[in-house]
Write a protein that binds this DNA or RNA. Structure first.
Length: 417
RNA sequence: GGAGAGGUGGCCGAGCGGACGAAGGCGCUCGCCUGCUAAGCGAGUAGGGGGUGUAAAACCUCCUCGAGGGUUCAAAUCCCUCCCUCUCCGCCA
């Protein structure tokens, strides 16, 4: 959620962001009028309330006719107050309906564009491997050993579910543990959070109302399955005020992630590249509002270090405005090279959501001159399934086996699979 | 799932219809005092919205005592619904 003061003092910044993001049809003038109106009506209601309290206060001290008169007067004011209050509430609701969906202000360095095709490549790392044998994709590589079983997964759960068995399962655990071991010394506290969350958590992080169609819901219990542990990690500190010394506060959350992938019908339908359920280690940081761009670089540096240690060639893209989520002010994606697809595909992303989430979640840092909203940032450490695919395809050998990246061997206990 | 207890400020804890945003204590901050880590004394110490503004300040006002509704001139206090925590029983990874 944006700061309402922007609408009052700098509406041009909002319109700039909207046009940057390619969103039109938002009537800021009407919103501003509605805002002024709701405040005026709220002020009238408050004046009545103040009078009511004053009159009410005299009732206890009066007797006889005077008391009766005060009670009668109080009743009149109470009626008027309730009516005015209802009017103010209604105006608030109308205002919020227009205000809440507005996305975060985008950073000036975000390229303007509509789809991921407009993302700006800013870096390449590593050498795209060349093979002197026919390249297999991850499913072909898994065929012999059967460590990825799509057919049986479909039997259990339908399409877009995967089953990792044997060494694939062990490799997942190795990846997770390896990532946590790298992050903990950098100040990230490992966390295993709930993945079933309340609506407030999704609203607070900006996934509601914008991406509601991507979220699995459990209507019988009013709970939702998270698409990323970012939701849980951000929400765990809702309504808190940190001492300045406590920030940046960093977590590395490990969780299963659930995504409906609605609208992705037909895309990446092969294997475990895009599935409804996957596992991920996610970095999350609550930091001082003056330091979030540095923190963004810091989180991104962790991502690069991890992918580099795995030795997977990648490129970095600065995600364009149209491909940016509502809560992000800026986002870098790392796209790994997938020999099976012969192109770069996203394996991590790192966003600075500035105060967009913290405003909804009411997370502040204590300062002498009033408390300030923290900035929140998130970044993928390891998206297990996609990383597994990237490893398999990049480390494949002529005989169809795969070499385990050196960094993981101490964790896997095996060198090939 | 069954039975009971309870949710108040950073923490503990009073209040159970009227001057209560809230006694008291602890903690913390500042000052004083005491010639030795300690003690004592004084002051301050929740968050948020709106308004006036000499706009850094100061002032006025409203909201918040788990959440939401209701009763009343008036609710932390009474009623209803929901959520959460704790204890005991049952079940269970």
């Amino acid at each position: 959620m944006l700061d309402v003061n922007l609408l009052r003092d700098h509406p041009e910044l909002i319109s700039a962001t909207l046009s940057h993001r390619g969103i039109d049809g938002v009537d800021l003038d009407t919103l501003a009028e509605l805002d002024a109106q709701r405040r005026a009506v709220r002020a009238e209601a408050e004046a009545l309330r103040s009078e009511q309290k004053e009159v009410g206060g005299t009732v206890a001290r009066l007797d006889g006719d005077e008391k009766d008169a005060a009670i009668a007067r109080g009743a009149e004011i109470a009626t008027a107050y309730k009516a005015k209050l209802a009017e103010a509430d209604e105006l608030d609701a109308r205002f919020e309906a227009g205000w809440i969906p507005l996305p975060n202000l985008v950073h000036a360095s975000v390229p303007k564009g509509e789809t991921e095709d407009d993302n700006e490549e800013i870096k390449q790392w590593g050498d795209v491997p060349s093979f002197d044998f026919p390249v297999r994709d991850h499913l072909e590589l898994a065929a012999e050993s059967g460590i990825i079983d799509m057919e049986r997964a479909a039997k259990i759960s339908g399409s877009r579910f995967g089953l990792l068995t044997g060494k694939a399962a062990l490799l997942e655990l190795s990846l997770v543990r390896w990532a946590l071991d790298r992050l903990e010394p950098q100040g990230f506290t490992p966390v295993i959070p709930p993945v079933l969350v309340k609506e407030e958590a999704l609203f607070g992080t900006g996934f509601f109302p914008d991406d509601a169609e991507q979220v699995y819901s459990i209507p019988s219990d009013d709970l939702f399955l998270v698409g990323t542990s970012e939701v849980s990690l951000a929400s765990m500190h809702a309504d808190e005020i940190f001492p300045v010394a406590d920030v940046p506060l960093r977590y590395a959350g490990f969780s299963t992630c659930f995504r409906r992938e609605s609208g992705a019908a037909g895309r990446d339908s092969r294997g475990i590249f895009r599935v409804h359920q996957f596992d991920k280690v996610e970095m999350f940081s609550f930091c001082h509002p003056d330091g979030s761009w540095e923190e963004h670089d810091f989180l991104f540096a962790q991502e690069e270090a991890l992918v580099q240690e795995l030795g997977i060639p990648y490129r970095v893209v600065n995600v364009c405005s149209g491909d940016l989520g509502a809560s992000a002010a800026k986002k870098y994606d790392i796209e790994a090279w997938f020999p099976g697809q012969e192109r770069y595909r996203e394996i991590t992303s790192c966003s600075n959501t500035t105060d967009y989430q913290s405003r909804r979640l009411k997370i502040r840092v204590k300062e002498d001159k009033g408390n300030r909203l923290v900035h929140t940032l998130n970044g993928t450490a390891v998206a297990v399934q996609r990383t597994l695919v990237a490893i398999m395809e990049n480390y494949q050998r002529a005989d169809g086996t795969v070499r385990v990246p050196d960094a993981l061997i101490p964790y896997t206990g095996f060198e090939t699979f």
